[in-house]
């Protein structure tokens, strides 16, 4: 507790895009409730703070930490461990912290080839072939920048996590509901769910919240949205051949994408009890391909242009695969 009696709050941004931070601010006037009930101990995006301020806190002094981003370098890891030590409740907030998200897709490539892409492509002017060094001698002394790890890991692969809040980013109404819950808990009006619970989401998959009408599924052809002129506004997108990840993706987003005509990309991650989201989706689609002819089946499958990017877009780092073999061995 701080001097004003308010419990302390922290939020941190590791390997991620920053959208999660915006999602929190996007709860509008609820942010005032939040301010009324919490004191911000550490939230680099919102206010200036130094790591040493956190280090100076007592263990467990922070009540709630929302941690977004995956663990890609030693700085990410250090802060994750530090915040874990200082916090009572650690929430993996958003897809990157939960399952690696888009940064996790880099696990398919060895680090050297990532650097090659970033520092040595045609669009980059880098004639001397400069690469980042983790330490550098300057006349003023040695300076350090964080060291990149061979693969990205999710928060719970590095520290003990209390709750998981999925989404890329988590929907604001879900953030607001979670904030409400924590405030009620602080006031003693509610109790926390059991450790390990996925919060801010439903317990089925996106189809459950999707308004589109659906039939028994039989797929003769996979198409991409740019390949078709018009699709039926009422009928399930998957039945129209668009790869909608709705069947495998945890509900809670109110099926915003499929309802507005864009196939679900899977940002809320796997449903309850599912170990490997991509494998689930692959098994499901394979089951409803409407052909018994191996040649035709091959042709239908050719319609899936980028399987890893389609089925593991958000969850590769947390899947049973975790990484590509090359990045695992190549470092």
């Amino acid at each position: 507790m701080s001097e004003n009696g308010k419990p302390k709050f922290a939020m941190y941004w590791a390997a991620s895009c920053g959208g999660c931070e915006i999602a929190v601010l996007n709860i509008h006037e609820k942010i005032l409730d939040f301010d009324a009930n919490f004191e911000v101990a550490f939230w680099p995006v919102a206010m200036d703070a130094k790591y040493k301020d956190v280090e100076a806190l007592e263990d467990g002094e922070i009540l709630l930490t929302l941690f977004n981003g995956g663990i890609r370098n030693d700085e990410n890891e250090h802060i994750a461990k530090l915040l874990r030590q200082k916090s009572q409740i650690m929430v993996a907030f958003g897809s990157c912290a939960n399952e690696g998200c888009i940064p996790g897709l880099a696990n398919l490539s060895p680090i050297e080839s990532l650097f090659e892409t970033v520092y040595n492509t045609v669009s980059t002017e880098n004639e001397e072939g400069i690469r980042p060094q983790s330490s550098y001698e300057m006349p003023e002394g040695t300076i350090h920048i964080p060291e990149m790890y061979p693969v990205l890991r999710t928060l719970d692969q590095v520290i003990d996590v209390d709750y998981y809040m999925p989404g890329c980013p988590p929907e604001s109404h879900q953030v607001a509901a979670v904030v409400d819950l924590v405030i009620s808990v602080v006031k003693g009006e509610a109790v926390l769910p059991p450790k390990g619970t996925v919060i801010g989401a439903g317990n089925s998959t996106v189809c459950d919240e999707c308004e589109r009408t659906r039939n028994v599924k039989k797929i003769k052809k996979f198409v991409r949205i740019q390949d078709i002129e018009r699709f039926d506004p009422e009928i399930c997108l998957l039945e129209q051949g668009l790869i909608c990840n709705g069947p495998a993706t945890l509900s809670g987003c109110m099926a915003k994408c499929p309802t507005s005509g864009a196939p679900c990309v899977g940002c809320y991650g796997p449903g309850p009890r599912v170990l490997d989201y991509g494998a689930r989706m692959v098994a499901a689609l394979a089951s409803v391909i409407d052909s018994r002819d191996p040649v035709e089946i091959e042709a239908i499958l050719d319609g899936i242009v980028d399987p890893a990017g389609t089925f593991y877009k958000f969850n590769l780092a947390h899947s049973l695969l975790k990484t590509g073999k090359a990045s695992w061995n190549g470092n």
Binding site: N203, S204, T205, V206, C207, D208, R214, N215, A284, V288
Partner: peptide, 26 residues
């Protein structure tokens, strides 16, 4: 029932026709 989203992927797969879909509860 709680976890089923009614996506209907499974509906035509059972070799023993054991799966039924309830339209009302989806």
């Amino acid at each position: 029932e709680e976890n089923c989203s009614g996506c209907r992927i499974c509906n035509d797969l059972c070799p023993y026709n054991a799966i039924v879909f309830h339209d009302e509860t989806m």
